[in-house]
Simulated assay, not measured.
Amino acid sequence: MKQFPPLVPQEFSLEGGGYLQAAADITLSSAGWVAVTAAAGDQLLLRVHGPAGVVYSLRTPPLLPHLVALKGERIRKSPAYRTVGGASRGGGGLALQGKQKKKRA
């Protein structure tokens, strides 16, 4: 990690088109892409951090706009089943997670 280059931010802004349709893709140089969804009409400012010289770009329209609707059922008791709430949810998930830790102790 001492030899890893410093990370440089790149910012992208876009408008959400609904949770069942990707608004855009962020392409990751030689690695693939990430489809971005948001509520219809929401203005997003995304910041991607990567090593200098690595190119990230915004692809609009997205390559597969309805790909986000093709997902399987959530598997109970798996690490991905329970999500932690972010700033938009008021941190409710974080408080809930804290309560679980108290019960186990």
Rank of each mutant, 00 (worst) to 15 (best):
V68T: 05
F12W: 05
F12K: 03
A80W: 09
R59G: 01
L96N: 08
L94I: 13
R82M: 11
G17I: 03
V8E: 13
Q3H: 14
R76A: 12
Q97K: 13
V8M: 09
L58H: 07
K102H: 08
V48A: 12
G17L: 11
A38W: 00
S57W: 06
G72V: 01
K103A: 10
G93E: 07
L7R: 07
L45H: 08
G32N: 07
T27C: 06
S57P: 00
A95E: 10
P79H: 07
I75G: 00
T83D: 13
G85H: 11
H49F: 14
L14K: 00
Q97L: 15
P61M: 07
G18D: 06
A80R: 11
V8P: 00
S29A: 12
V55D: 12
P79C: 04
T60V: 14
K102A: 12
A40E: 14
K101R: 13
S29Q: 15
K99F: 14
G91K: 07
A23T: 02
V54H: 06
A23N: 03
R59E: 08
L46M: 14
L45W: 03
I26P: 01
S30V: 07
Q43C: 01
A35S: 15
S57M: 01
P61Q: 07
L28C: 10
L94F: 06
S88K: 05
H49G: 03
G16D: 02
K103T: 09
V34A: 05
G32S: 06
S13W: 01
G72M: 02
G16F: 03
V55R: 11
A40R: 15
K77N: 13
D42V: 03
H66E: 12
Y56S: 12
A23Y: 02
T83S: 15
G90A: 09
S29T: 04
R47A: 04
L44H: 02
D42S: 12
A24M: 02
K102M: 09
G86R: 08
Q21G: 01
K103F: 08
S78Y: 04
L96K: 11
R59P: 00
Y81W: 15
L46Y: 02
V84L: 15
L63N: 04
L64S: 05
E73A: 08
L94C: 10
R104H: 08
P79S: 08
G93S: 11
K102D: 09
A40H: 10
D42E: 15
P5G: 12
L46E: 01
T37I: 14
L7G: 06
E73I: 01
G50H: 15
T27K: 05
L94S: 09
W33S: 06
S57I: 00
Y81Q: 10
P6T: 13
A39N: 06
H66K: 10
R89H: 11
R89A: 12
M1W: 10
G17H: 05
